[in-house]
Design a protein around this nucleic acid. Structure first.
Length: 455
DNA sequence: ATCGGCTCGCGCAA
DNA sequence: TGCGCGAAGCCGAT
């Protein structure tokens, strides 16, 4: 692995260890940023210290996300220490606490390595933190299979990025080499460490100064082991059904891994490798799944990284901005308030069921998520209101929200990475979706019944 | 049940 | 410069 891109200073100055800050990829295995930090440490004869944090000043901090993240911590600590690395987890319980642990740890580090991540808070950290610490700072892309840098520019759509990804895939679709640390971390653990065990998670969450009105997901428990369990289940039960049923939500044939991908409990790389191996062994064609996991996911990261902004209508292609502007003042026969959306109180039973899935589980099935978004456009006073509502609901409830993928999914509803269609009110030439269409293609009633039963 | 048109623009072949 | 075709469709004609 090359040592590249120093954003501030040069490695080689003094320090007691190399610090890896698990900002977006909260895992020890299959992590290129951590592997890079380990190589740097070995090169300098220093130990590796891994830092994972959870903050309450995050604008959407609530019980759901806190619980999910905390559930991953004991396993990360165990695996980090098994490598011979140091591990510090710090939960800042109060909104007023400064982010002083990172700065303290960084002040004794030879270099800070972290995750490049083109959205939400991590993106802001990577822009602001380097200037505040006096040591070299390396953000490494540990999220994508083909690193964002290897594409290097904003792509217009799946059809333009696909050939580039496939051309580069052989170079990158291989396991991250096992990390072996030459120097064990033997220093005393820094005092500011929050001990997390399966038993004290609920107590830690309750004591945090966060929004306690969004309960933990009823469906998804966080952590590496849970991610691995779901991957095994998907391979065994659903990979062979995926091509046929991925757009039939009532069949539940999708991987259910997006929450774990979002928090980095598992990597897209290891999922792709496991899927490819299982598919070869069992003579399954996995192309449809790998297209979603690789091409479309990486298109989303490409958009977030190289587009002007991942969460703004300004980032749409010109034809979409034009047609939306033309229809900005169209009459909206039905308009719901944010509260009506949030409480799943529309006239449409399918839409309400998708919103209930979001409220209860923290995800919406990928296919219905598009319908969910299209209807919010139809039922909002302005396009900007619709975007604000979608981002608000995702940021607040979706475990896989605040992610390049979800922002891209949301903007897709406004024409991003899509093409124009027959002009119609409100939508202009943006693709429209209807309840009749959903009924024609999917078993709407089975899905609604499943959401009702799940209460 | 199936089919074509709708409508724009990228990237490639020529 | 022309041409094919695209992230998940709709609608009306047959």
């Amino acid at each position: 692995m090359r040592i590249e891109r120093s954003l501030s200073g040069n490695p080689g100055s003094t320090g007691e260890y190399v610090l890896y800050w698990a900002l977006a990829n909260r895992r020890i295995e299959s992590n290129r940023a951590l592997a890079f930090a380990a190589e740097l440490a070995n090169q300098r004869g220093l130990p590796l210290l891994i830092y994972e944090a959870l903050t309450c000043s995050h604008p959407c901090a609530n019980d759901r996300f806190h619980t999910f993240i905390l559930e991953g911590v004991p396993e990360n600590q165990r695996r980090a220490e098994a490598l011979g690395a140091g591990y510090v987890f710090y939960l800042r319980k109060s909104r007023r606490d400064e982010d002083e642990v990172l700065y303290k740890l960084a002040s004794k580090a030879m270099a800070v390595v972290t995750d490049e991540y083109p959205a939400y808070i991590p993106r802001e950290y990577n822009a602001s933190v380097p200037a505040k610490i006096g040591v070299p700072y390396y953000p490494v892309d540990a999220s994508c299979i083909v690193p964002m840098d290897a594409i290097g520019k904003q792509e217009y759509g799946a059809h333009t990025i696909r050939p580039k990804i496939h051309r580069l895939l052989d170079d990158h679709l291989k396991p991250v080499p096992r990390v072996r640390l030459k120097t064990k971390f033997t220093a005393r653990r820094p005092a500011l460490h929050t001990s997390v065990t399966p038993d004290n998670i609920a107590k830690l969450v309750a004591a945090s100064e966060i929004d306690h009105s969004v309960p933990p997901s009823k469906e998804f428990a966080g952590g590496r082991r849970e991610a691995e369990r779901r991957l095994r289940f998907f391979l065994k039960e659903n990979l062979r059904r995926y091509a046929k049923f991925s757009r039939e939500p009532s069949e539940r044939a999708t991987s259910q891994l997006s929450p774990y991908l979002h928090f980095g409990h598992i990597s897209a790389l290891e999922i792709a490798l496991a899927v490819r191996e299982y598919a070869t062994e069992h003579k399954i064609i996995a192309d449809e799944f790998l297209e979603e996991l690789i091409v479309r996911r990486e298109l989303a990261f490409n958009f977030a990284r190289y587009g002007p902004k991942p969460d703004s209508l300004d980032a749409l292609p010109e034809w979409a901005r034009k047609t939306l502007a033309k229809h900005a003042r169209d009459e909206r026969p039905v308009v719901y308030s944010r509260e009506q959306f949030e409480t799943a109180s529309t006239y449409d039973p399918l839409w309400n069921a998708t919103q209930k899935e979001l409220l209860r589980n923290g995800v919406i099935h990928g296919y219905y998520r598009m319908y969910w978004g299209k209807k919010i456009i139809e039922w909002s006073r302005t396009h900007q209101d619709a975007l604000d509502t979608m981002i608000y609901l995702h940021d607040r409830y979706a475990i896989d929200g605040r992610d390049p993928n979800t922002y891209t999914n949301i903007l897709w509803c406004f024409g991003l990475h899509d093409r124009p269609w027959t002009e119609r009110p409100i939508f202009g030439m943006i693709r429209y979706m209807s309840l009749d269409g959903m009924r024609r293609k999917t078993d709407v009633d089975a899905y609604i019944a499943a959401q009702e039963d799940a209460r």
